[in-house]
Structure formats: structure tokens, C-alpha cells
Design a protein around this nucleic acid. Structure first.
Length: 489
RNA sequence: GGCCCCAUCGUCUAGCGGCUAGGACAUCGGCCUCUCACGCCGGUAACGCGGGUUCAAUUCCCGCUGGGGUCGCCA
């Protein structure tokens, strides 16, 4: 079998949607698995909505996710830079290509110019609706057998033979048959020479030798028209794989109304790209009971036969759980990568610019299995690096009370005498001290925790002590004792 | 409304004629415990309905119902 060529063809009209990412991912996975080619093409023919900024967002998101493309625009260089055989793949730079193919179809009488105006058609549509509300409007073929007025602006329409039918075997849905009678003479080129989706995509997929088109099920309706175009242009028809939709919890189309839907939001909320990919891959695809995958495992396991056909609902809670699986210590992410990623979130908290990767590495083990996101992780790390730690007012009021002051001082004195300050020696020291002052750890644990971290929840006290170091621990205990002293209670 | 697609726990899913219908997330108990988590143990929870086919249907066929997609000089 020849190596497949796949593509992801988003239009730059906003952020990169997680539904789009799933489409990109399935294409990418199959290309990686088969040694095929993954092409990125920007479909910017909707000039009203396309922006250079959202094109950049697409590049950035794809790069963050690690979904690298083999051919397509090079965002790091000049857009005119050629990569591989083709490129850059932005449709607005290929207008003459579409025009050429459209011209050919006209020559061969497979398409014709039509100068019916949009207003005319709208009027006809409404008139029909008034006469028979249930009737379906189709272009009546007004210009099919006449020569359009060259003075008037005209579109190019593709002739559809109403007899016969189009059929193809979808890699996910199986055989799909559409009678041509359901179709109509559709527009392939606008009056301004810009191609419409169906035509642009087909011409591009032909010239870019795309052999498998995998896209959302919302495009399934376009496939018959596109196949007709392939045939009319004498090109071989690619394979198709349509993916079921990812809907919001409400069952509606996923949109901003239903919470975060753009890749960028998840990035800034502290999700790992691998987790995002893992969740999306397992959505509508399965591999026995396995839920957690590295990228490599995904590539090895992916196939089309285990793609489901039913639409699904996006579940942010499960995504969060999958993210935790990727963040906790495991084969999925080495400490160094974790530290690298979380450092940015630490710095983003402000006032912690001095913190280095090495600092994070030292404290990492205390929080790695506790944080679900990098944002949470950075928050947990905060007390280690900020001196004095930010005091939670409620924690202070509840635990740094008068009674605690002498205890904190006494403990400080005990810890100050420990020579080799480790997790174990700190623990041993504290136990000895507890025995000496005849207190239960439950009586002093929280005051100590608040003294050291400013919070009522933290990693193990001894881990915190070890990471902070003896001097910091003693200072913080003394500082907290002073606060407790002045407490009203 | 026409055309098209789909249908197993709340959610993502396994199942491809015979299973106590399995897993994961969520949820609810319990254990662990210096706090919060983590972890561990256990529970609740699904084959939409009606006809067929068959010795036997979650599984195959038909209808219904429900959900979704799409009906542009958007993609």
C-alpha cells in the first residue's frame, strides 16, 4: 500500500477549537503510524472572517500540541517559503489554480457560468416557500443552457446529472449512497473568482495528492458533490473517514457558551498537551480498556476500525482526570519536563522571577502526585519560594493563636539544633520534641503547617521542612510565633 | 420540513448470537492519615420502545421514538 497523504484544513476564523484538534490528531496519528504525510492547509477563502492573527493561533496551538506538519505554511519563516513539494498552502495564494480547473470544466461543458444574482435566487426561494412551505428549493438551472451576459458578474456552476448516484465507502461509517437527484448545480467559483469550499478543497486535495480525507461528520453532506468533482476532473477519488461530532454536555454544538473550547485556554489553565491529545484520542475511539496513552502509544494503537460512529459529549471532568494521570509521576512525563512546564506558571504568579528550574526540581517530589494541573502545581509550590509565605487570613486566625507561640518557639529551638537536616532527621526531631513537651502532633501540626506555608493544606510537614531547609524553617517558625503572640486569642 | 447519520451506566466506552453486560471519569461509602490530596477497598448506575429472524438476541432485519448533521456566491 502506498503511504497515505492526509491533511488538516482549518479556516483561520478564530481560535483553534478542541473539536478541530481531534480531527487534526486523527489525521496526524494515521500519518505517523503509516509513515505517511500530514499536510496543513489554511482555508482562508472566507475573506470576511479570516485573519492573520487566527492563523498564528492555529500555528501556535498545533505546535504546543506537538502536531507537527510535514508540508504546509512555515510560520517561522517567510510565508512564500516552499516546504517539500508544495506550499505554502493558503488558498488565497492559489486562486489561479482554481480558476484554471474551473475553466477546464467549462471547456468540457461540465460547468457553466451563471449570472443569476443572489437576490434573484433569494426571491425565487421565498416565492416557492410561500407557495409550498414544504418544498425544497433547488437552483432551477436557469443558466444551464444559455450563454451568460459577459458584462454581468457571474459565478461558475457545476452541472449535476440528476440521474445516477454517488457512493463511497467511509472508513468509519461504511457505505454511503446519495442519489444525484438530491443534489443540484452547485456554485464552485464565486463571481470574484474565489472558490467555494467544495471546489477549493477538491482542487487542493487533488494537487496535493491527498489520499485520505478525515474530517468531522458535519462535512459528510459535502462528500457526494466533492466526489462528483473528482470524477469530472479525471482525478482518483480519495478515501474518506468521517468522525462523529463532539458536543457540549447540553447536547448542543460545542461553543464558547459551554466553557473552554479553545486549545489556548487549556494551555493557560495548566493542561499538558499530551493529556489533551490523550483525552481527544479516546473520544470516539477505543483500545480495549486502556485509557491512558503516551503519544507514542497512541500512534502505535490508532486505527480506523475502532472509531465509533455515535456523537459524544465533551466531559471537562474526565479531561481533568486524564491530565492528572499525565502530571503525576509516571512514564508519561519526566521530572525535567514537568519542572520546565510548571516554571512558567510559577513565574506567572508574580514576585517569583528568581525561581529556577533547579529550585522547582528540588521541591517537585512533594507536590507531583497532588496537582491536577500546572496551575495547581504552581500554587502548591508558591510557599516554598516566597518568603515570608503568603498568610491565609483564616488559617492565621484559627491556628496562630496565643497558645501556639511558645510551642512554635520551642519547636524552632529543637529544630535549630539538628545538624544534618533531612526529612528523616526533621521528623525524628519533631517526634522527640513532641514526647518531651507531651503534646500530640494533632495539637501542633496545623499551627506548624501555617507557620511554614501560610496555609492549612500542604504536603507532608517533614517534606516541607526538608525542602525549605533548616534556616528557613526556623525563621518561619519564629516569625509565626511573633504573629501568634500578638494574636487577640 | 427534505435529505443524511447515530443510539450500552450521568459521561467516554468494551461487547462483534449464548457474558453475573467489563473498564475509565463522575458520584456515594470505608480504609490510610500531621492537613489537603494521593493511594487502596467497596457500592449505586446502562443495553430507548415495538415487531420480526433464531433453540437463543445488547448483538442481525424492519418500524417508531429520541438525538445530531445539513439544506448559502460560509467552511
Amino acid at each position: 500500500m502506498e503511504k497515505p497523504r492526509l491533511r488538516f484544513a482549518p479556516s483561520p476564523t478564530g481560535y483553534l477549537h478542541i473539536g478541530g484538534v481531534r480531527t487534526a490528531l486523527f489525521n496526524w496519528l494515521w500519518a505517523k503510524k503509516t509513515g505517511g504525510t500530514f499536510v496543513l492547509r489554511i482555508e482562508d477563502t472566507d475573506q470576511e472572517r479570516s485573519t492573520a492573527q487566527s492563523m498564528k493561533v492555529i500555528f501556535d496551538s498545533l505546535k504546543w500540541l506537538g502536531l507537527s506538519w510535514d508540508e504546509g505554511p512555515n510560520p517561522d519563516g517567510d510565508f512564500d517559503h516552499e516546504i517539500g513539494t508544495f506550499g505554502p498552502y493558503t488558498q488565497m495564494k492559489r486562486l489561479d489554480v482554481y480558476k484554471h480547473y474551473a475553466e477546464r470544466l467549462i471547456q468540457e461543458k461540465k460547468a457553466y457560468r451563471c449570472d443569476c444574482t443572489k437576490e434573484d435566487l433569494d426571491r425565487q426561494r421565498e416565492a416557492l416557500k410561500r407557495k409550498d412551505p414544504k418544498a425544497q428549493f433547488k437552483y432551477p438551472g436557469t443558466c444551464r443552457h444559455r450563454t451568460s451576459d459577459p458584462q454581468k458578474p457571474s459565478v461558475v456552476r457545476f452541472k449535476v446529472d440528476p440521474s445516477g448516484s454517488v457512493s463511497y465507502v467511509d472508513k468509519v461509517f461504511g457505505e454511503v449512497v446519495t442519489p444525484n437527484i438530491e443534489l443540484q448545480d452547485f456554485v464552485i467559483l464565486r463571481s470574484d473568482g474565489v472558490p467555494l469550499y467544495n471546489f477549493g478543497a477538491v482542487v487542493d486535495d487533488i494537487t496535493m495528492h491527498v489520499s485520505l480525507v478525515a474530517r468531522g461528520r458535519d462535512h459528510m453532506i459535502n462528500t457526494p458533490q466533492q466526489i462528483l468533482l473528482y470524477q469530472a476532473l479525471g482525478a482518483s477519488v480519495p478515501e474518506f473517514a468521517h468522525l462523529p461530532m463532539m458536543l457540549a454536555q447540553s447536547g448542543e454544538k460545542l461553543s464558547k457558551r459551554h466553557g473552554a473550547v479553545s486549545v489556548g485556554e487549556y494551555e493557560s489553565q495548566g493542561y499538558a498537551p499530551g493529556a489533551m491529545l490523550n483525552y481527544l484520542a479516546r473520544f470516539g475511539w477505543s483500545f480495549g480498556d486502556q485509557e491512558i496513552f503516551s503519544k507514542e502509544e497512541l500512534i502505535a494503537a490508532f486505527d480506523w476500525t475502532h472509531c465509533g460512529r455515535g456523537d459524544g459529549k465533551f466531559d471537562p471532568k474526565k479531561l481533568l482526570a486524564v491530565n492528572y494521570e499525565h502530571l503525576k509521576s509516571s512514564r508519561l512525563m519526566p521530572d525535567a519536563e514537568y519542572a520546565d512546564r510548571v516554571l512558567g506558571f510559577v513565574h506567572a504568579r508574580g514576585g517569583l522571577d528568581h525561581v529556577t528550574t533547579a529550585d522547582v526540581m528540588r521541591a517537585l517530589y512533594t507536590i507531583r502526585d497532588r496537582a491536577q494541573t500546572f496551575v495547581q502545581a504552581a500554587d502548591m509550590l508558591d510557599p516554598f519560594f516566597r518568603t515570608p509565605p503568603v498568610m491565609d487570613e483564616n488559617a492565621k486566625a484559627k491556628f496562630l493563636v496565643k497558645q501556639a507561640a511558645p510551642r512554635l518557639r520551642s519547636l524552632r529551638d529543637a529544630l535549630a539544633a539538628v545538624s544534618d537536616f533531612t526529612e528523616a532527621s526533621a521528623e525524628a526531631c519533631m517526634h522527640a520534641w513532641l514526647a518531651e513537651v507531651r503534646l500530640d502532633i494533632k495539637a501542633v501540626g496545623q499551627p506548624v503547617r501555617v507557620a511554614l506555608t501560610g496555609r492549612t493544606a500542604s504536603p507532608s510537614l517533614y517534606q516541607v521542612m526538608f525542602v525549605l531547609g533548616r534556616e528557613q524553617v526556623c525563621n518561619r517558625l519564629a516569625h509565626a510565633a511573633d504573629i501568634a503572640e500578638k494574636s487577640a486569642t
